[in-house]
Every structure is written in structure tokens, then in C-alpha cells.
Nucleic acid binder design. Sequence first.
DNA 1: TGCTTTTATGAAAACCTTTTCACCCAGGAT
DNA 2: ATCCTGGGTGAAAAGGTTTTCATAAAAGCA
Lengths: 335, 335
Amino acid sequence: MESNIKDVARLANVSISTVSRVMNMPEKVAIETRVKVQEAMKELNYTPNALARGLIYKRTKSLGVLIPDISNMFYSEMLHGMEHAAQRHHYNLILCNTDNNKARMLESLNMLKEKQIDGLVFTSEPVYPDYYEVFKKLQIPIVLAATHSLEFDIPSVKVNDEQASFDAAECLIKHGHRRIGMICGSITDNVTAMPRLQGFLRALRVHDLETDVDSQVQFGGYKFEDGYEAMGQLLRKFPDITAVFASSDERALGAISYLHEHGKSVPEDISVIGFDNLRLAQMSIPKLTTVGQPLYQIGYLAVEKLDHLIQNEHVGELRTYVRHELVERQSVARR
Amino acid sequence: MESNIKDVARLANVSISTVSRVMNMPEKVAIETRVKVQEAMKELNYTPNALARGLIYKRTKSLGVLIPDISNMFYSEMLHGMEHAAQRHHYNLILCNTDNNKARMLESLNMLKEKQIDGLVFTSEPVYPDYYEVFKKLQIPIVLAATHSLEFDIPSVKVNDEQASFDAAECLIKHGHRRIGMICGSITDNVTAMPRLQGFLRALRVHDLETDVDSQVQFGGYKFEDGYEAMGQLLRKFPDITAVFASSDERALGAISYLHEHGKSVPEDISVIGFDNLRLAQMSIPKLTTVGQPLYQIGYLAVEKLDHLIQNEHVGELRTYVRHELVERQSVARR
DNA sequence: TGCTTTTATGAAAACCTTTTCACCCAGGAT
DNA sequence: ATCCTGGGTGAAAAGGTTTTCATAAAAGCA
């Protein structure tokens, strides 16, 4: 039932070369032959086979995307941007969810290589040296999205986390807060969590506030439940707190939830500022003040950068830093 | 730099047939030859080319996924399930975001066909007759996820929307509510919105409450803003309302937001029940009571059903209906 | 008219595998 | 000694395309 170029050629009474030409350089074939062939293609419901094409062109117009957890809005917004850029540049996206699991990641990478992807976008997670080894073996253009590597020269696009956190903290300070806690990511993550911590501390220092990481900062996961948990810890260790910087929106909502359940109202008693500006930041009560990263744009630019790499065009800067933006809503109050 | 089977064969001093055998039926080749070949493969960092394989096997181990909007948590949770099922059965997922745009969908479908996907999962959106024509031309196994078709015999997996809505409405009624409004989807959508409306109305009738669609039901989009908007309308048309069934969690949060801003507290003044049980339903204040659909599972099962179709195994039932579940949290109060 | 150039087409090689078939050789049975 | 069996291997075709090169016909030009 599936028809190939041969069937078309036979039906149109031409050679397969001619059929191929009709598809790729139609101006090179006589007008009558052309329509004859096109009619045959239509009649047979013919579609060219991208596998055969890819074999010859050594190019598949497919990109691999490695994502730790697609159901996380953080990644899905980025993915959305990637998908649009991919459509624009005629790529397909092959999606691999890694669950932050190294074995699964390597497996996916292997599968992607076998499928001859033209390029790869790697999201979040730092690039550990052994990852870099694998990347090198892949022999494929790679772009990092929402992460970067200072050790290795891999193109990347992300926000300036240190500065963004600085701005978040400064926002709280400018609203008159002096006793500020932070809910931070894992201490082992120095591509995202550490810069954010540093930005936070810098803001405190710049404004002559004392800093005490031990009591003031709570480390943990990025999820709602982690934020909830962390808020509890923080309140115990640092009771006279008036504001909290939660370095992800989910954590922020978790914190707010904890505060709400423990009779503190936001922002009247305690102000909370988040990080990311996911769609859910507008949906909470109170609406969340947060420092936004343009996730859609990060995804979009990552794919465009990858395309440049693939086309061997100039890549622009190796490490692109996109603008963050302070989004003031209702979870931060003047004090 | 890229090595093929020939390079391996040359280095190992064997024919390419032998190399191929080492990969596909290693027991058929003498142990010394086997290790010789394996060493050569390792030395050359050889990976087989899935394009060439696919050409022969007429099977690519790739599935297409058509999704209206990946950044929507509704789809991203489903996608997560699909991805896990895909990994389990050794498929790759090629993701296409359609933006609910017909032209883009057809374009994607074409691309997917060219790439020789083994099957397709189509999410949400009703299957219009012209879609069905396209599907037929595709000559590829298809499964519908979170949608179904009564006109056409296409395998599908989804929740029983009518019954789920019935349960939602009944939950409100059992909590003593008599004046209940509904925020509903578009009136043109009769795969999801209409059954939900019918379930809602059935519950009212069964419990001898009067129904007046005109004043009691507000139609609109599924987003937060739509819910916000709709809540306003509803309150104007049907002022002495004590409870609202919003037929998506996002709409429910929009409604809650509206109520909050207009001085009504949830659930003390007005109860709200949602639909979906997205992750964000646990993150709101108050935590949202909702009737949950197992989105992850829907995605997972859809891919497994697709796999059965591809393998020509028995598909089980054509239309699978998975269990919904009433998740009682804090947005519904007794009256 | 006879020559060269151009235009339209086809044959065959190449891309990288898998698989069928044939071959060779060692060992067991007769 | 002869035949058969079978394990291990290689040559070649097939899968669907693109592309190079060759060829034939038509057109241009003197």
C-alpha cells in the first residue's frame, strides 16, 4: 500500500530521477512531465521517505531534547519555545525525559545518536566532566538551555542567576525588610543554586545587612513540598523574619502555603518573593511577586543557536545571558 | 570521523555481515571473532545508523505526539506518562505542538509521516471528519488520548467525563448546596465540554434541583483568565449562588481569584470544585477540591495501546475509560 | 546544411544496514 | 574412503532516495 518513488515513476512513465527532480528542482523538468509526475504522486498518495533522504543528506532535521521532568512547568514552558523555534526552522523535536537519572540519560543519548539527530539541547543540570566526555563522543552540536558550563566551552542560553537573585533580594530590602530568609536549592548545584545564594548575600552586604547563612538560608529541593518544609525550618531557625526569597515559584507557593496554615498572612506578616515567573505565579492568592526568567525565549533561542551551529553560521556569543525581569505583584509588602 | 559498519569490518578483518551478526545474533559468531569485532566497535566509537535500519525493518521505533499546547500542565502531565511508556517499550517520541491550528497540524502530520513514525497519539480536540480522512491516508496506527470519537472507530483512552462531572456536582449537592453554577467549556466542543455539562445537569435533576442553563452555566475558554471572567458573569446572572463547578482546575483557580478579589471567601461564602487535579490544585489557597483524571496514566496507557496496535496484538477494548477520582480538599464546605 | 550548445531525461552509484544464499571446512557417521 | 551435517563466514541484493554522469533530442548559429 505504501508507495515509493519507483511506483510514482512507473505510473508517470518516467525514471525515478525525474520524479526526484520534480520534488527537488522542479524548474529543471519539462512542464508536461512535471504535472504528469505530480498527478501520479497525488494518485498514489506518495510521501517521500525521510529515512532514505537522511541517509544521503547526512542530516535528519531532527533535534534531541533532554529534559529532567517534562511535567514541570518550568521545563514545559521552555519546551514550548523550543518547539516553536523548531517549527520555524523545520526541525522535529525528539523528546527524552531523563528523570535526573544518569543511566537513563546515557541511554537516551545513545538512542538519539543512532537516530542521527542533527543537534541536541540539554536543559538544566550542570555539565559534569563525564557528561562532557559523552558529549564529545557524540560529535554533534549541543546547546545548553537554562544551564551553562564555565569549565567547558559549550554554547548556552540562560539568565544571570546571580544578578536576578540580587534584584529579588534588593526588592525586598527596598520594601523596608531587614530580616530576610532564603529558601535555596541544593548546595551541590553550583550552576543555579549557588549563584542565586551569592546574589542574595551580595544584596544583603551591599545594603549593610548582616548575613548568616546557617540560620538564614534553608537548602532543599525545588518542589512545592520542599518549599513548605523549608519555610517551617526557616521560621524555627530565624523567627523574626519579615520576608523570604524563595528561589523558585513552586518553593514560594509552598512557603506561602505553610505560612497560611500557620496563621501568618502574606504579605501582611511576611513577604514572599519567588523566582521563575511561571504561569502559576499569577494564579495564586496573593499573586506572587517574582523575578521572572523568560523560559519560552530561552527555549526558542537555544534552538535557534543550535540551528546556527548546525548550519555552521556564526554562533554569536558562546554564552548568552537573557534578561530577567522583576514582576511585582502582591506577595511583597512595604514594611 | 563518523564510522560505519564497513570501517568496523575493515578494522576487525571480517565482512560487514559478521559485524552485523555481532550486533543482532551474537551467538551465531565464533567467540574470538566476536570480541575482535567488539573491540573494533569500541575503538571506532561505532553506533549503528537507525536510518539505515529503519529502511530495512520498515519500522523506526518512533512515535508522533500531537499536542495543542505543551506548556499547559494538562498536556505536560499526560506527555510525561507517554514518555515513560515510550521508554519502557523502546520508542522515541517526536513532539509536535499544534497550537490548535489546523494547518500546523496537517503540516506536522506530513512531517511525521515522512519520518516514518510507527504510530501516532493524538490528544484532545475532537476528531472532525476531515481529520479522519487525513488519518486514513496516513496508514498508521493511531490512539486518541484524553479524547475519543463515537463516529469513528479509533482506539482511545480517556475518562468518563459525563460521570465525572456528575460526581463533582453531586459532591456539591451532598454538601448541602442547592444553588450551583457551572463554568463550562466551549459549547462547540462535544467531546469534553458537552458531556461535562450533561453530567452536571443530570446530577441536578437526579437530586430534584431545577436547572436553567441560561443563567446557571457560563461557557468559555479553559484558562485561568477565562475562569476569572466567567465567575464574574455567573455572579451577575445568578447572584445567590453558593457553589460553583468549574470544569477545569485552571478555571477553578480563576474563579477563586475573582471571588477573592470581590470579597467573597472560598469556601465559606462560595464553594468551588474543579476538574483535572493538576499539580497546582494542591498548591492553591484554599487547596482545591476537584475531580481528578489520571493524566499520567492516560498518557501511559495510550502509548501502550499504540504499541499493541503496532505489534498487531489484541488491543483490548477499542475505547478505554479510566477511573476518575474525587479529591476532596478545602475549597468545598458544608452549608 | 552542418556544427555546437542547451535542455530533458535516464542509468547507476552512493548512503548504511540486514538478510538470504552460497561457500568452505571440520568432524561424525557409514 | 565417502558422504553428510553444520558451524562460521562472506558476497550481494534490498530498502528509498539523491546525485553524477552520460545520452538523446532540440535549439541556436554560422
